[in-house]
């Protein structure tokens, strides 16, 4: 068995699918954020394996930028969770329907 870039891309796709399943089925906003982290990391793995395959640095640079974006997303998301908790709202993303109507 030769572990080439295809194997890394396959693992990345599986991780992305798992994260997608979590985003679709879970209701706790914290676990939703954790699932989004899995998806971002799966895309990072694809970027880095492509960078290694093509021998160019750009993929690694983009992976670092994706890390920064993920950190920003976590900060804002956790801020929202804390704000929800402070307003004594139910910590359930399905109950956040205030903007529907």
């Amino acid at each position: 068995m030769h572990v080439g870039v295809a194997w890394f891309l396959g693992v990345s796709a599986v991780l992305f699918g798992i994260g997608l399943y979590g985003v679709f089925t879970r209701r706790s906003p914290i676990i939703l954020l954790l699932s989004v982290e899995i998806m971002l990391n799966a895309s990072n793995l694809a970027l880095i394996s492509a960078a290694r395959y093509s021998g160019q640095q750009a993929g690694q640079v983009f992976a670092l930028v994706v890390m920064a974006v993920a950190a920003s997303e976590v900060v804002v998301g956790l801020g929202l969770v804390v704000a929800m908790a402070r307003r004594r709202a139910d910590l359930d993303v399905d109950s956040l329907t205030g903007l529907r109507n």
Partner: peptide, 10 residues
Amino acid sequence: AAVAIVAEVG
């Protein structure tokens, strides 16, 4: 959805 994305990349 999860199986679709895995199959697509596969």
